[in-house]
Amino acid sequence: MNRWLWIILIALGLVAPYVLYPVFVMKLLCFALFACAFNLLLGYTGLLSFGHAAFFGAAAYAAGHSIKVWGFPTELGILTGTLVACLLGVVFGKLAIRRQGIYFAMVTLALAQIVYFVALKSSFTGGEDGLQGVPRGRLLGFIDLNDSLNMYYFVLAIFLFGFWLIARIVDSPFGQVLKAIRENEPRALSLGYDVSRFKLIAFVLSATLSGLAGATKAVVFQFASLTDVNWATSGEVVLMTLVGGVGTITGPMVGAFTVVSLHSRLSWMGSWVTVIVGITFIVCVLVFRRGIVGELQELLRRLRGRPTRARPAAAAQPQATKREA
């Protein structure tokens, strides 16, 4: 099944720019990577961060600035953005990781607001105007990224790498420990696993990959703006993940496609889009709690006649109940 997933994914990725508008697909891929990175934390570690836009946005600014002002080549600029997100992840993580449930979400939100404030007031970010006119440049010095197909396949490669890495992390011995922590944290601790350390590393990995998505986005659209660091973006990625299916490997991708498509298809409705997306979210929470992919998996399982295993979704839930107990 795993191999088929990859074949389908790569085939779709290769064909997509001939069917859809390439820039739109690139946007889909950036947000899909962002949501997958976020899901590494929410779905596979059980931590709800409400400040992931800080990593996405800071990386976008850092990539944009290093390419535009310092004249970094594109690939190095993206790397710089990713590294900034990684460092920011270490700082956020160190401060927030010992908090549980809603407190963890609040600390990450507060820290992200600081980043937003810095972006708003600093001169290098361009404040309200954003950082405009980032040149796409040439990949490895000879592939012209102003050609949208070249740019597209570069983005696709980044996305596939990020997605592969996340799948690998989930499957790795490290991922097993994350699963154990999610299932029974005191027990994991009593077996000698330094739980805080595992959570911190998962947090930093998630931040770094979110940064990779943000930096790539800055190059695709040739700008970074306050929207990228705004709390609304942090909310959006939660929504994408939940709509697609938290704790499933492809769910966040499907969620990101759904939400981004809704936004672009319904853009003629102005701010009503927010209402529509909100209603979609409510319906999702009320009717299919496992998210699109989660429900499909459940359906498949039932068709094969196997008993239900996982409870409906929200990996953040056990933490909340644990605190009350």
Partner: peptide
């Protein structure tokens, strides 16, 4: 796994 270590290696195959 706890006894054998190596659990931090997130890049290794399961």
């Amino acid at each position: 796994q706890a006894r054998h270590g190596g659990s931090l290696r997130f890049w290794r195959s399961g």
